[in-house]
Write a protein that binds this DNA or RNA. Sequence first.
DNA 1: ATGGTAGGTAGCCTA
Length: 262
Amino acid sequence: MPFTLATWNINSVRLREGLVAKLMAEEAPDILCLQECKSPVEKIPVEQFRALGYSHMVARGQKGYNGVAILSKLPITDAGGQDYASLGHARHVAARLENGVTIHNFYVPAGGDIPDRSENEKFGQKLDFLTEMRDAFRADAPAKSILVGDLNIAPREDDVWDHKALLKIVSHTPIEVAHLADTQDAGKWVDVTRADIPAGRLYSWWSYRAADWNAADKGRRLDHVWATPDIAAAAHGSRILRAARGWEQPSDHAPVFASFDL
DNA sequence: ATGGTAGGTAGCCTA
């Protein structure tokens, strides 16, 4: 059962219902994982998505902030959601496909502006969230699993527009990169996007604050697709739909795609 | 070195 999956930080699923529908209509991934839905689950506009063939959803939501959803053309069941770092935030949900594959959808905390947990509580929460993810994968080794989402860290030098300039900028500091690597190692996760596209600059996010995001191209790869080694070799066709960043009233993130021949 | 934009929701918080 081959399938294509996409992950997209939508920055309000209600405001951008039309863009979600556009992606569904034009790109038609079998499974679409959204982050920053900024909506209680019962207020996610599922009717239009259902009409486009996405008749299954598992989600966690809250009013105004965070929120994650997995929309699917294929049948899925709710496989739970964890409150990592005990923040009381809707930042994780998991779904299981009929072929036994588990999909984890994460929205890791952004971490504020100051990369120091003694000065900035949110930075500590980000590190703690990653540590608890790591511990969960150590305690219960994932298999036949895919992990996607806005991990809010660009780990590689070629995942950012200027490595040196961003070393003290939250999302690319060495301590964050080390925490992400520990989390990845704990689950033996393969970075599917970089397995498919091993070299060259790759971004999935461009700030709203740039005068001309496309010309400046000061991007970062914050959005990731990982898979466990037992299914990672089945992955192919990774791409980032940069064009979506240029759509009318866009999200500041572009969707990341991967296909799996399973 | 600074400030720049965006969304949700009620005068700021978060990204």
